[in-house]
Design a protein around this nucleic acid. Sequence first.
DNA 1: TCACTCGTACGATAGTCATCGTAGTACGGC
DNA 2: GCCGTACTACGATGACTATCGTACGAGTGA
Lengths: 118, 118
Amino acid sequence: MTSTAATSRDLPHPVRDEIRLEAVLHALSEPLRLQIVRELCAEADELACSYFDLPVTKSTTTHHFRVLRESGVIRQVYRGTAKMNAVRRDDLDELFPGLLDSLLAAADRQAARLGAGG
Amino acid sequence: MTSTAATSRDLPHPVRDEIRLEAVLHALSEPLRLQIVRELCAEADELACSYFDLPVTKSTTTHHFRVLRESGVIRQVYRGTAKMNAVRRDDLDELFPGLLDSLLAAADRQAARLGAGG
DNA sequence: TCACTCGTACGATAGTCATCGTAGTACGGC
DNA sequence: GCCGTACTACGATGACTATCGTACGAGTGA
């Protein structure tokens, strides 16, 4: 094949204008999903679903990634057998400037506060 | 009685350190509750529950205000028969600097975008 | 072709949630 | 004391959700 086709399979994503703040907040209100997004942003690169060692089964993992994708928080694309995930930072920053950074900062701050047990 | 007691009834609130980001996001992921918080911030003053003209029954209104209170987003206090509501801006700003402003800005932006239909 | 890995689809289940109606409590004014 | 207003508590209900297990599909490499 000629170019950038990931594979044959395509996944449905909301276009930028279909992303809703409420859906984004709902997606991020789940601890596991918030953690996934934090790691995705920390790595600043595409990560496979299997990269994450989550305390749930594969079925549940699939579910959480789908919620993130359908809410517009992440973009998913197949590369071989792996499904790669990346935060839709450009779209989110365009729609809600500064929101993602504030959310990540808030999550970091809380993690530091709760983790350190101060 | 001597001073500032609102009335006899007191309502349970989480203290600052008990406020969790996930709970805040969950509370604000509901359109009605997000709207309530937006109005509370816009008025910059305490507002009674009855101020809001919500398309749900009083029971449901009570439920939504309780979720906001128990997540730490708002503070509620009785004044006579009225229950006054105010956003806990100081606590939220201390815990998650800039988050509330980003969320409100995002909500405003989305409202303008969807309302204007541009 | 065969096996292996990664992820999906489906069905089930237990829990949470938004909603309502009704009945009840607390406060303020008459 | 009595009534009206503001809000609550309780029970019910339908919808959604997080979770799982099992069975399956799609791709990679031997």
